Amino acid sequence: MSDASAVSAALSHSLTPVELFLQADSIVKTVIVLLILASAWGWTVIAEKLIRLGVLHRRAARLIDSVQKELPVADLPASFDAASPEDPLVQVYRAMVDENARSSDLQHSETQRDALQERVHRVGQLAAANAIDHLHARLQGLATIGAVAPFVGLFGTVWGIMNSFQGIAASNNTSLAVVAPGIAEALFATALGLVAAIPAVIFYNRISGDIGAYGKRLNSFIGVFEVELSRQLSRKGDRNGLRAA
């Protein structure tokens, strides 16, 4: 076997990811482990958020369709009452219905009706904001991974290259067989940093957009509820006026 063939065989053996990890020093190994853990955690968050948001969007479409013709404001319809109490749309609807029920004995004058609509609006907005905050939970971790992981990988690369140069100086040999493994170990850390960061950035933007779209759906539902509540309060006010006359 020629010297070139021997060097090629040695490199093909030593440049596998497992071998690169095993040959790296403790600092580079720590960087690699941290990046792998960050990537695994990021993919867990991504999967959980995508599945949950997909379920919420489909369920919201179903629930809104179930009350499209008639939107009760005094109690929850059967479709909402049977849905998961953890669903944000159900929480918003229940909060507004409960506020309307607690204020039922105050619906006499026009001023009180206006105050009721304002309270229902605020209660709905608070419930929606609380639900959106829960959906954003752990999402900042993805942003952190996307921003920090490349620099952590770069640190591992710089440290590994420094060790490679020290090895070259100690051996006084600059052949490819001596230089390549150390450089490959260093670049492996950068590659892992990008592998962790790129999906985190992509899915952070996508998930943030999905949450924003769901938040708009909640706000639209609050608006529809307020319109229906105003209509029913106006009818009640008209009936009270007729009785008074």
Rank of each mutant, 00 (worst) to 15 (best):
I207C: 08
L34M: 13
L89Y: 04
V67Y: 00
S208E: 15
L63A: 00
S14H: 12
K236N: 11
T157I: 03
L187W: 04
W159R: 01
I183Y: 01
S2A: 12
V227K: 07
A200E: 10
L34T: 10
Q91V: 01
R62F: 00
T174M: 12
V33I: 15
R239K: 15
G215H: 04
T174C: 09
S26H: 15
G42M: 06
W43K: 03
I168S: 00
D81M: 10
A47M: 14
A213F: 11
R62G: 00
V120A: 10
L22S: 08
A128E: 07
S103T: 12
G209F: 10
G146H: 05
V227H: 09
H134L: 12
G241H: 13
A24N: 05
A191N: 07
T16A: 05
G193I: 00
F151V: 08
D114Y: 05
I145N: 01
A115H: 13
S79G: 11
I211T: 08
G241A: 15
S14D: 12
L53Q: 03
Q68K: 13
E70K: 14
S66D: 02
I145W: 02
S5K: 14
I36W: 07
D210E: 05
A95P: 01
A197G: 14
L89Q: 06
N163Q: 07
G124H: 08
Q232D: 04
A10W: 09
Q140T: 15
G167A: 02
V73P: 01
L37I: 08
D3G: 07
S104K: 15
E99Q: 12
V45N: 11
Q166F: 02
S208Y: 07
M162D: 04
L187S: 06
Q112C: 11
E226Y: 05
H134K: 15
I36F: 11
L194F: 09
V224G: 03
V152E: 00
S8R: 03
L218C: 06
T111H: 12
P88V: 00
A170K: 11
L229W: 07
R122M: 14
F165M: 00
V179G: 04
D3W: 13
V67K: 00
S208A: 14
G141Q: 05
V120L: 11
I36H: 02
R239A: 14
P150A: 03
Q166M: 07
R239I: 13
G42L: 05
I145M: 10
G153I: 01
P181D: 12
I198C: 10
M162K: 01
L22R: 09
L15T: 04
G153T: 04
R206D: 14
R52F: 02
R52E: 04
V33N: 07
V33A: 14
L50N: 07
A78R: 14
D238C: 08
A78K: 15
L71S: 01
D87W: 03
P181T: 09
L154G: 09
S79K: 00
T190P: 12
A95K: 01
V195K: 02
F188D: 02
S39H: 09
L35F: 10
S12H: 14
E185L: 08
A196H: 06
F21N: 02
G209R: 13
I211P: 02
S171P: 02
K29L: 06
V201N: 06
N130M: 11
I198F: 13
A170I: 03
D25V: 08
S2H: 10
V158S: 03
N100G: 05
Q91S: 08
S103M: 13
I202Y: 12
A197F: 03
V55T: 07
I145Q: 04
T174R: 05
L194D: 13
